[in-house]
Amino acid sequence: MRSLSKLLRNRLTIPALLIVALLLVAAIFAPQLATHEPNRQNFLAIMQPPNAQHWLGTDELGRDIYSRVLYGARISVTVGILAVLLGGLTGILVGLVAGFYGRTLDAVLMRVIDVLLAFPGILLAILLAAVLGAGLVPVIIAVAAYSVPSFARIMRSSVLSVRAQEYVEAARACGAGDLRLIVRHVFLNSFGPVLVYATLLMGSAILTAAALSFLGVGISPPTPEWGAMISTARNYMRQAPHIIYGPGAAIFLTVLAFNILGDALRDVFDPKS
């Protein structure tokens, strides 16, 4: 409860939560909220600026941008949640095992993590997306892969500090087994930093997925993905710059909201602040 009131004391938390809520509503109720079929082309209405019928205008094929942005939220939310879950679970497992069992297993796992960390951010995602081909699943795997090392490191350092605490020793003395120690004592006590990172990662996962599609190695047109929409729109920037604004604002606000929430959560969980 105290954490929650501390979280809400940050003035930006509520607007950020509102944006995330809007994103979720858009993703879930896209079919109900959309005014047009997202992929229906209308050659009588191409590149129209925003108007009463097309709130964010139409694109180069006469498709309604507002409806496409709504459907794009579905893809972004799906990629964000699944990539963070996949990367998070894998990283947490690796970090827990490495930190808890130590010695050789720790050394081997951490060297693998070092290698993954040698790939700067988006490069690993680009490599995997290029190898696995275009589509939703490759993008999710690519984005998850680059988050594994950070999750593993956070978890491992938490485990190392928690493992040395007296209450863990006490629990062991009381006869608690490895699994119980890991789940009950180590994992639950390391939850804060993991949650902070997962929140920050949601924003960057959505951003990376959009960047991959923008570069042409992610989700390809005609799927209404925000990055892919912007990528196509750049060819018509001189005649119809408005095509960029809808998906651009959607990505920007989404990433901004998750960054604000991540920062606010960090302030709550970081004892120094």
Partner: peptide, 22 residues
């Protein structure tokens, strides 16, 4: 700073191009 971190490279690049080049 917060806005700067959240603005995607590709969006910023296109907006700069739109304003200063086109």
């Amino acid at each position: 700073a917060l806005l700067g971190v959240s603005l995607p490279h590709f969006l910023l690049g296109l907006l700069l191009m739109l304003v200063f080049a086109l």
